[in-house]
Design a binder for these strands. Structure first.
Lengths: 222, 222
DNA sequence: GCGCGCTCTTGACAGTTGTCAAGACTTTGC
DNA sequence: GCAAAGTCTTGACAACTGTCAAGAGCGCGC
């Protein structure tokens, strides 16, 4: 089915979600805190093993809790995964805001954007492969689509802010649509991620830097 | 020796490495034929369910055999999957050869290339999402990497043949590397696949056509 | 202090999975 | 026509999965 918790267990209500029938009120801070704590453990495990190989027991095993606690905080596995994905998204959507805000020339923006791409590729490769894993799974599993498409749109907006600012600093207009810009950059990044995880890391990073430097000017009208 | 066991059609080379389980050297034609037969059933199931949800029983269930036969022709699940991937690759690598050979102007090549992309997106969406699934899994599972990287390189070569011919017909040189060209086109295609499977199909196909038409001229030196 | 509700653990369930052994059926060689 | 080898089915195994019920431990208000 579509989303959110069905009426099976429904532990104590939190703030934002609509709890159908809460037995009693709860601290609600502690509750959300635990959910985030479990989400972080889950994200780490998911990034290591991938969506398919990650079991709830493995997630609980990498946390300080036992496997039963997952069903106290999440109605089922899908709800946990989707919660993790949204939680992850909130952490990385503003990644390039500094690049956009601090750059004063198109060259500077281009350099720092490419550097930021390389940095996150190095530091968060497991999270990125998890994202691509989930996005691909959403092509098979309908229950993931809503969350995935929303996050994908958010990432596209993020890229568009960079490109718009790049055009603005260049005194030009963007020649491509937001969708196309995101598509080509995402393709290069995904290719680099695969190369980084399976081949020569430094060479992959250098190549990505070159590719981004070569591609970005092409997105402008001349 | 006896009967008419000489090469009938033999899609696969006669020289194959010894099967892992050593079923005693057989007609070897029938043997490879069954492997391909199973591979085709497996590909269909894999394209429908994805790599993670596809079990050997499900594969056998969609074929005319029982689940035990899989282990007669393949030593384990991974060998079956990898065999399927290679089998699939052989079917689609020459997809754009006609486009390259028959086009006599850059505009014609561009049109027919974009049309071919749209066509395969429509007709073989399950196979394409399976490919992206396996490529993503190879970021987690080492046993898939060798086959995936080889196929990825083959696809890059395929795209490069198109782009090279496009440049040749245009009387120009390509401004991007094979890697970058493949990366950006693959990004657009993957984005279109996701859109095709989750949203408005016709709009996605039209958008892909426009994006390819807009992108290809940018790959040339001007 | 006591009871009650929140939190968490333990243990079990039904189902599924990859794997393989034992044997039945089929084809082939002589 | 028969034995042997190839082919395929059946049934079982151990491990693993998501799920959930029963209950223990804990903390809080009264």
């Amino acid at each position: 089915m579509a989303s959110t918790s069905t009426a099976t267990k429904a532990p104590s209500g939190a703030s934002n979600r609509a709890p159908a029938k809460t037995p009693r009120r709860a601290p609600a801070d502690k509750y959300d805190e635990r959910r985030n704590q479990l989400a972080e453990s889950a994200l780490q495990t998911l990034g290591e093993l991938g969506y398919a190989r990650t079991s709830l027991r493995e997630i609980a095993n990498n946390s300080e809790f036992s496997h039963g606690v997952v069903h106290y905080y999440f109605s089922d596995k899908t709800e946990l995964i989707v919660y993790c994905v949204r939680y992850y998204k909130a952490q990385c959507v503003r990644r390039y805001d500094g690049v956009v805000a601090d750059s004063t020339s198109p060259e500077e923006l281009l350099d720092s954007f490419a550097a930021k791409l390389v940095e996150t590729l190095q530091d968060e490769a497991p999270m990125h492969r998890l994202w691509y894993d989930l996005r691909t799974q959403s092509m098979f599993d309908e229950t993931l689509r809503e969350a995935v498409l929303m996050i994908d749109q958010t990432l596209q907006d993020m890229i568009w802010r960079v490109i718009s600012r790049y055009a603005e600093l260049s005194g030009a207009e963007v020649a491509m649509t937001p969708s196309a810009t995101y598509g080509v950059l995402d393709g290069l990044f995904q290719q680099a991620l695969l190369g980084y995880l399976t081949g020569d890391q430094q060479q992959t990073l250098d190549r990505l830097t070159d590719q981004v430097h070569a591609l970005m000017p092409l997105t402008l009208k001349s």
